[in-house]
Design a protein around this nucleic acid. Structure first.
Lengths: 349, 349
DNA sequence: TAGGTCGGTCGAAACGTTGCGACATCCACC
DNA sequence: GGTGGATGTCGCAACGTTTCGACCGACCTA
């Protein structure tokens, strides 16, 4: 039902050859103004709305679509301001090049890549958020020969766009040490696709299989902070922060500072502290990671590490565009920025 | 660079005709197990990863892609839990049919439909959130002959999926009247693409050009509540709720109840009231619309009208799938449900 | 043994474009 | 007046698939 009328019909109606009619639309190649007008006129008369995109793609060998691989549960995915801003950056840059953005939800837990990923028409793919960098997805793209850009994860032989996770967390650690904190509690992002959420053995937590989670933990240690108690979250959600917050504040001796691997988690920590009647930062300091806006936090300004999220998305899109065109693309690691707020202060004596 | 090897190569390598090789993949039509295995074997050897989706689409006359038209600024769009859940519903249902989801950001303000909307390959389109139902987008789809499903907006001659906006707001109005409130302040969703945000003339506000905003306002009146003061928001954001909340609470006499056209706005109202040291609901009642989770609200449970957001998305997707297949689809208006919480109470005497 | 059926395979014709090379036509210039 | 270069226009061959109808054995039934 799309368009029954084709370029052939238009050409016939205009009294020109198909090639000429094509020129009138593609704009590439010499064509007289008169002929062009004649063709466009005929097209309008027939209700022809431009060349069939599928046929054009086939002929050109490019679909004009970039696949964006996201977590299956969009609800949880998009509840995360980081994911949203990344996506926004991607959309902005793709839009500037008039490229389509095909959303491909994948389920990390299931062992197989979705059909869409294996069969949809696309010139390149962007795997968002590291989480989607699960083996099946990556393998499926390899098999298809579709070039891929990984965000927040380094994959051998692929382009990746990341931020300085370790350095950022190191800065937080040093900030807290400078304030005299020695008893620090931590809530991390999920430790791995199949790792259980909840208490984490602080002495030897093992290495997280999520690249940025591992890097942030490492940064903490590099900065000289060895957490006295830690919790792994199920996701970057406020509720998880609240839950973890209570768990961490139950520890004895009570930590004087809490660090979260995301701002949403940090917000949860803050709320948990408030629920217990603890003053922030007098009784307990709280720091996060990401640098997103949390307008509902009230007067507090969260101490956090700002990462250039939107820029990350833009760079990923730019890389994907290059790869789609057959050009090389470079990986990048973007800088982060410790932004002290009102939620961290000197350790209580 | 996608796949240089084609079905022709595979057929040759397997020693069968191209048609037979095609059958081995499409599965449609009779083919002996032996031949099929032979073909798949040859395909694996050559690194052939299945039929080229573009060529298949051209031949089949269907692209397997549904366009989803959203507001240009994804950041603001996806900050809205309603939009996200709708999208989640759409994604779920499309995923079940292995259909692709092409995100098409549109700028309502600009007069033209984006190139993507006019030229991308898709079998049908879903216009989300009413906001995207601006004339240029709709016209562009009409011209292309692409069937469209409108969410939260009724467009003549198109399928639309909506909720009972008026009835929901009427229920809120009756609820508040039952509690004895007579001085009610309101913050609405944007009044129109070009309408100025800020104070609204309550006696004759004019008709909102946004369908659901108009319907909710009408519902309020039907329920017997004539606002004593009103503010139009710029969008469904907490910050706007806070701003509007202060403006509304500045009115004299101060309203005893505040109604918001969305839960995010209601959350803002709540925060504004708290900032002023007002007790909710003893000093002022607050009600919202949507029924989304706001885990960071603290102990309060917002009185609101729950709408089946995810279901709305699913129905829109189902309708789009039907239209894409050339089948008819029905419009629908989904029911809503007043859910009294702890934020509304008797009017102070 | 002849006729009918059916499972399996194949050729060829689309699907709707684009772009290369060929071919006119015309003007300018020596 | 002939040569050369623009300038438009056109035919034709892809692009990689699917699908329709034809074909050909083999098996079944009368």
């Amino acid at each position: 039902m799309t368009s029954r009328v084709t370029l052939t019909d238009v050409a016939r109606a205009a009294g020109v050859s198909i090639s000429t009619a094509s020129l009138a639309f593609s704009g590439a190649g010499p064509i007289s103004a008169a002929t062009k007008a004649k063709v466009l006129r005929a097209a309008a008369d027939l209700g022809y709305s431009g060349p069939n995109p599928v046929a054009r793609s086939l002929r050109r060998g490019r679909s004009g679509v970039i696949g964006v691989v996201v977590r299956k549960d969009l609800r949880q995915n998009f509840r995360d301001p980081v994911a949203i801003q990344t996506l926004d950056g991607v959309a902005t840059t793709l839009g500037e090049s008039d490229l389509g953005m095909l959303l491909i939800p994948t389920d990390d837990a299931s062992g197989a890549a979705p059909d869409l990923l294996r069969h949809a028409a696309m010139d390149a793919a962007i795997l968002l958020n590291g989480a989607a960098a699960s083996a099946p997805s990556v393998r499926a793209l390899r098999e298809r020969g579709t070039p891929a850009v990984h965000v927040d994860a380094a994959v051998r032989g692929s382009v990746s766009i990341r931020v300085q996770d370790a350095a950022g967390m190191r800065a937080v650690a040093e900030h807290l040490r400078g304030l005299g904190h020695t008893a620090v509690g931590v809530v991390t992002l999920p430790w791995g696709p199949r790792a259980a959420p909840g208490p984490l053995e602080v002495s030897r937590p093992g290495r997280s299989s999520v690249p940025y989670t591992a890097a942030r933990w490492a940064g903490l240690l590099e900065g000289g902070v060895v957490p006295v108690v830690a919790q792994a979250a199920r996701g970057s959600w406020v509720e998880e922060g609240i839950r973890a917050g209570h768990a961490l504040l139950d520890a004895t001796p009570r930590p004087t500072a809490l660090v979260a691997f995301s701002d949403l988690l940090a917000a949860g920590l803050l709320l948990a502290a408030r629920e217990r009647g603890l003053r922030v930062p007098q009784d307990v300091s709280v720091a996060g990671f990401d640098g997103v806006d949390l307008p509902w936090l009230g007067g507090d300004v969260l101490t956090t590490v700002a990462q250039p999220i939107r820029e990350k998305g833009r760079m990923a899109a730019a890389a994907a565009i290059a790869l789609a065109a057959g050009e090389p693309a470079r990986s990048a690691v973007l800088g982060v920025d410790l932004r002290p707020g009102t939620t961290t202060g000197p350790a209580p004596s």
